[in-house]
Amino acid sequence: MEQFINAVLEFEFMQYALLAGLLVSISCGITGSYVYIKRLGFLAGGIAHAIFAGMGIAYYLGYSPILGAVLFAIFAALVIGWIHLSFDQQEDILISAFWSVGMAIGIIFLYRTPGYNIDLMSYLFGNILMVSKQDLGFIIILNSIILLSTLLFYRSFLLICFDQEFATLRGISVRFYYLFLLCLIALTVVLLIQIVGLVLVLALLTLPAAMAAQYTHSLAYRMLISVLLGGFFTTGGLALSYQPNLPAGASIILLAGLSYLCSLLLQALRKKWQQHKTSATNKL
């Protein structure tokens, strides 16, 4: 741990990595809470993997892969949202297809790019230690968009998540806000790809929100707790991975998974204890 603190004080790239992890946690906690309550995990997974097509194409054409990721994330969110709103029956099949075809397109374009690229692994599994000053600026911009949108439309999002029929009756466009929300989730996925990579995105998106859900019945508080937990996981995972030289992204996810498991066990024990207590008082 001491070595990690020294490294953070000494190396610029460690400071960037730490800062990136903390910043991304903000978006992750906010949109992750929506993913959790609307059970959008599968849709988010589809978006995350389809983004790979955008990265591959951008890479092939010589543009920044992240630019391709942003554009394709929006595109994927709109397509998947449209599938969800229009095809009730085959939704899972269509999203699975989109998921895999997106990956396939990305792989083919990367393969055709002259000169073999080492970046493939870092897109798939993330590389938080490679975050540059420029990346940090990009993270701040996307973060601001997501934060501001949520502040402005918090109640509209809450309503369309809670009761779509009532929203329609009150003249609030469910379609618009649903697609808007998916776009915010897609942008969060782009942010997370830089930290843990697209394969591991889902855990970081859902686990903090799932843990927060065990402790509070207010969406706003859930978001706050999720943000704090996300910050803890990225920082903790980074710290744990430093000395043994483990991949940071995988360590972050492992920490999140283990924490979730502990939290589940604690909750189960607490419930048992309460039952025990009430049955004891009933006997008296």
């Binding site: 309550i37 809450l158 998540c161 809670f162 779509q164 029929e165 019945h217 207010s218 859930r222």
Partner: peptide
């Protein structure tokens, strides 16, 4: 039509 556990 809402989930019983919806945080509201």
């Amino acid at each position: 039509n809402f989930a019983k556990t919806f945080p509201i």
